[in-house]
Design a protein around this nucleic acid. Structure first.
Lengths: 217, 217
DNA sequence: GGTGTATATTATGCATACAACAATTAATAT
DNA sequence: ATATTAATTGTTGTATGCATAATATACACC
């Protein structure tokens, strides 16, 4: 039985704005105003302001005293985030091999099926759907580590490079390889094989990083 | 010439609440209410709510629909944060050796002098003062890396273990060693010696972690 | 034409009012 | 006495109003 949790307007606005910034709909340097957003979204300034405070805490938006300027994630930021992931994602996978639950493994399997489905589909917004499955897969991996510190740190890094991940998986060959790498990680986790999990996760990050590095975006 | 920046009430409240949570004044599990904080601090709920949204974004406080529960940082969280720092702080120092400015080096030197002063002092709240110098030193190191990703990630981790760092440096022998380790990092940075900087930073994190691990706090 | 100043505009910062909701306690019917 | 319902209390969620700060604009003056 699923608990029915009401999502507040402020939360919805946060999610939408975060997505719009991280996908590049609002570009680096663009200036927004609470009043304008308030009018566009049809709500008062209060929930807007609360969402904005959270975005400021994530360092992807900044108040200036005269409008808010979008910071977003530069290509350089993205590459540095991979440098960090290179050094800790393997360890998170190692932890996950020991701690992941059967339920989490089941959900992971589901994301693999959907990822495969969206890759075969190849229609208009399939890159976004593939990317969202990538997000869910990694979220489950980080959760499965059982470590709050790894979960928080890696989740923040992975989420912030959303835009670049979309671009990457829009290349069919990379999307297919990414799926295979996810499957290798899943297999190691399901077997609770720490060594294999660490190796597979590191391999996946290395390949993703290399793929990103040679894109011009 | 220094720009005069007014700090908003909401920002001040954020800083105070964050500090109170991270130092353990508000303990894990404790329930707060906006109205109570509003009355205690003598401001309306609006700036309180904005501060709370930022604390929620940091995962150290959580709304429950009936009050807000303090999450804080457990000992296990702290140890995992060291595991992460062990893997990336050396690289940040390597970057800093290449990118740190003379101004940042000058400020770093100043924190070393103050750290030394407070260690010698050994009065009532000297542990807090030493810890704050530790914060400033590492903040300068992360800034000096010139990488936003490293800065954000490491800064968040270092800040969150505030409580444990205070406890650690309240032990005089550890405080002295920590100062020496900082000096070694500074020396390498001032010489722009990447290898030495990485080695010194890693050594410092290893020793700090080991010191923490054998404390019972 | 250039410069200083007043003014208008537009933004954020904070306080307050009210609605909605959940939990607890009191009241009431059976 | 117990179960059910109603009232009370305490909480968060949202809208709105007003003060203040920052910037742009207009204009007088040299």
């Amino acid at each position: 039985m699923r608990e029915h949790r009401t999502i507040s307007i402020a939360d919805q606005i946060f999610e939408q704005l975060e997505r719009d910034i991280l996908t590049g709909k609002y570009q680096r340097g663009e200036v927004l105003s609470e009043l304008r957003l308030s009018a566009e979204l049809g709500v008062s300034r209060t929930p807007i302001r609360e969402a904005v405070r959270r975005l400021e805490q994530e360092n992807i938006l900044k108040e200036t005293g005269r409008g808010m300027v979008v910071i977003g994630i530069s290509r350089e930021d993205m590459l540095d985030m991979y440098e960090i992931r290179l050094r800790i994602e393997g360890l998170a996978a190692r932890r996950a091999a020991a701690n992941i639950s059967d339920e989490q493994l089941k959900q992971m399997e589901e994301t693999l099926d959907l990822q495969s489905f969206y890759i075969d589909k190849q229609e208009g917004d399939s890159a976004e759907q593939i990317r969202d499955m990538d997000s869910r897969f990694h979220e489950l991996l980080y959760e499965g580590s059982g470590s709050r510190a790894f979960h928080e740190t890696l989740s923040a890094l992975h989420r912030k490079i959303m835009k670049y991940r979309s671009a990457s998986v829009s290349k069919h060959s990379r999307a297919l390889l990414s799926l295979e790498e996810h499957r290798a990680i899943y297999k190691a986790l399901a077997a609770h094989d720490s060594e294999a999990a660490e190796k597979a996760a590191l391999n996946h990050v290395v390949n993703a990083r290399d793929s990103m590095a040679e894109m011009e975006i």
